[in-house]
Design a protein around this nucleic acid. Structure first.
Lengths: 254, 254
DNA sequence: TCGCTCGGTGAACGGTGTTTACACAGTTGA
DNA sequence: TCAACTGTGTAAACACCGTTCACCGAGCGA
């Protein structure tokens, strides 16, 4: 297993230390404080040494982005464990609530990952942020979609202009779910469902970004009721059975 | 009227030139390119001279923010002129579409104003971004709320925890509308309506930010159908009469 | 053991925000 | 009219930044 030579292990350790230090600076003092020299200072080395590990500050920030997404993933996934697999709506709610909590607790990281203009993405390779979060979301949604009795999208027709995009995305969803070992019955993953994922994501992101950036049209003392209301409305619109109150799991009082 | 002395006029001119140059740099090369020295260079001045006009780079950026909001205001308001005052839903749609168009055409400005973490706002004075955009939105919403026959919010009860905040905001809305010369009949501005404004804003911002930042869970070729669908769904949920197709006003084909 | 790669250094270049001391035009007041 | 003052600009300097370059030494593989 440990194919790594001593050198490789040392290198991996330093790489991790660098990203961790960068992350700490980001959290503590914001994106602009993530400085090569500050990182080096913290690690007891000089700034040019960092170029042995990352091509540029920008590249390092990208790596930090990936770390953040991995952490987000690691925080969202266990949020599922607390909810029975037979309560799909409860699982979706749990993930949404966990995402909001994470964003409010890590505004700088949220901004870096979710509110920076699209990088040009030099050709091959998709943006990591999308894929990482997509991974988590897909994982959750996968469980929901596989439990057909729980998810009955209304039969609203989908906008015709969106059809091709949705079909393409459905294929990607199928692949991702297959990778995770989830087989999707053939007729199950309707375009309606894919379309609903989009709607959830728009509202989830909208609310959370507004709350993190303090950009509600007026200062809300507590946005949590608004968030909870949004979730239940989404659930109703999505055709979830309204019987289950979806186990609010004692949201810590802010 | 021209109480201003010669000096004051010159000063105002230079201030405008500075902000305009900063704005051009922002648009052309992003926020990090807005450099005191670059601005000074463009103006044929030295950097320290800028400190005669703004206390710091940060203060200048705030001023640029206000300029941007003023421009946004100036672009949204005339979007109303094209739509009859007797078509309130059409007016709301017009403003929403204009906001999206503006954001897509000015991503750097959008990011600066709407996707930066809340500034601490040193005590007095609210954040300008909020108030500026609020101003436009309020102006539009004002017309809608004053035409009661067009706006019939469902009688869903509002989350109890939101009640106090909504009441406070309703008061601010009343004041703002009164300033604009719009008298709101007493029983008209229900809490339901205020709550719906929040819902519109969450979805509008969510969609536009995701589109500008390229953070949809998969690459959409064209997000406009999704946007249009969202608007109509919002209209239905808000209790607007669905008869009027709300005059799509020939959206230019991207 | 020889040589080579890897990870580090220090110096340097050009850029940045910001402060300071200074100069000088234009306005203001006696 | 002439002095004082105010506003606007400058140059120099400080501390910091990303990045490049030449160098160097320890440790590893042959």
């Amino acid at each position: 297993m440990t194919e790594a030579t001593r050198r490789e292990r040392l290198r991996a350790d330093t790489e991790r230390d660098i990203r961790a230090t960068a992350r700490a600076l980001l959290v503590g003092q914001g994106r602009d404080a993530v400085t090569l020299r500050a990182i080096a200072r913290e690690l007891g080395i000089t700034a040019p040494a960092l170029y042995r590990y990352y091509d540029s500050r920008e590249a390092l920030l990208r790596a930090v982005c990936e770390d953040i997404c991995a952490d987000l993933d690691a925080e969202l996934t266990p949020a599922l464990r607390g909810v029975s697999a037979h309560d799909p709506l409860g699982r979706v709610f749990a993930v949404c609530r966990a995402f909001r909590r994470w964003a409010l607790a890590h505004p700088q990281e949220f901004e870096l990952v979710f509110a920076s203009p699209e990088e040009e993405s030099v050709g091959l390779g998709r943006r990591p942020a999308q894929d990482r979060f997509g991974g988590v979301f897909i994982h959750v949604i996968g469980h929901v979609l596989v439990a057909p009795e729980a998810f009955v999208p209304t039969t609203d027709e989908v906008p015709a202009e969106l059809h091709d995009d949705l079909v393409a995305y459905r294929e990607r969803l199928r692949e991702s779910l297959a990778e995770a070992g989830i087989q999707v019955p053939n007729g199950l993953l309707e375009l309606d469902g894919v379309y609903f994922i989009l709607k959830w994501w728009v509202r989830l992101y909208g609310h959370i970004a507004l709350e993190v950036f303090g950009r509600f049209p007026f200062p809300l003392r507590d946005a949590e009721p608004l968030f909870e209301r949004m979730l239940t409305e989404l659930a109703v619109e999505s055709g979830f059975p309204t019987g289950t109150p979806a186990t609010p799991e004692a949201p810590e009082s802010r």
